[in-house]
Amino acid sequence: MENKKKDDNNSRRNFLKLGLLAGAGTVATGALIATGKNSGESGEKIKVLTTSGEVMEVDKNFLTLAPVGRVESHEGIPGRKFVMVIDLAKCKNARKCVEECQKGHNLPKDQEFMKVYLMQDSEKTAPYWFPKPCYHCDNPQCVSVCPVGATYKRSDGIVLIDNERCIGCKFCMTGCPYSTRVFSWKAEEAYESDQPYSPEKSVPGVEGTVSKCDFCPDLAREGKLPYCASACPMGVIYFGDIDEDVVTNGTETFKFSELIRDRSGYKYLDNLGTRPNVYYLPPVDRQFPFERGLDGLDEEVTKRFENTPYVKNLKNKETL
C-alpha cells in the first residue's frame, strides 16, 4: 500500500517535471500546436510497442537518447561529476536495486553489479544492510593496474570498462579492494543488439572479460536516475552531480553537502586511499528493524547469510 502510493506520487512528479522541461522556452502563437519531435531521421531503428500490439521500429532520433559511441564514451558527460549517497538507515534488503539493475543491464541471474551485504562491524555492534555498487574511486586501483586501458576513468568520474578491449587478465579484480568486479566465466546466451557496441550501453559483459556497475551513464544522459536509485522502494539511494551539490532519490532532493553534514556521511574503507565517490549515511534512527531484511528472501539469498556471525547467533538462540 505504502509503496504503491509513493510510486504513484513519484511518477506524477516526474510527469509534471517533464512537462516543465518540454514547455520551457516556446511561445504560443495562438494557433493550436501539437508538439511532437519531428527532427530528421538518423537511420538507426529502435523497437517499441505500437497500438496494433506489435513491435515497431522507430527511428532513433525520436528517442531523446543521445547516441553515444565508443569514442565518446571514453570522455564522459561534460561538466558533470557523479556521486551516490546510500542511506543505510532506510535499507531493509528489499533487493529491488539488485533486480532492477540486473534487468536494466541484461545481466544473467548469477551476476550482480549491485550487491547487498549483511554487515556487522564487530561482535557486539549492530548489524545493518549494506548495498554496495562500484565506488567509482578518484584514485581507482583497478584503472592503475589495467595493462590495456580497457577500464578507464572519465571526466565525469565514472569508471567504465570497454568489453571489446578487455583481455580478461583479472588484475583489476584483485586490484579492487571492494570486490566490485565480476568476470564472465562462461558464454551466456548471445545478447543481440542492433546498435554498435559502446561501454556506456547497458549490455552484459562478453565471455572472458570483466564487467561491473557503471552508474548508468546512458540513463544520466537522459536525465534519469540509475536503475538502482529509481527502483528502491525506500529511497535509500541518492544520486546526483557533486558539482551541483545536489542529490536525489527521485522523490526527495537534498543539497549533498547538507545531507552529508547533517547525517554524518562517510565513505567505506576510505583509509585505503582510493577516494570513493559513494557516500554512506550511518544506520541510525532506522526506519525498519534490521530483521525485516531477512524475511521473504529467495532461498538462494538466505543461504548467503548463513555463515555470518549474526545469523549463526540467531540460530544458536533458537536452538537453546
Binding site: 592503475s144 593496474v145 589495467c146 595493462p147 590495456v148 586501458g149 580497457a150 578491449r165 583481455i167 588484475f171
Partner: peptide, 12 residues
C-alpha cells in the same frame, strides 16, 4: 592489445 594499447603504469 598488450602491445597495441599497453599502459606503462600496469605491472603487467
Amino acid at each position: 592489445n598488450l602491445i597495441l594499447f599497453g599502459r606503462i603504469q600496469s605491472p603487467i
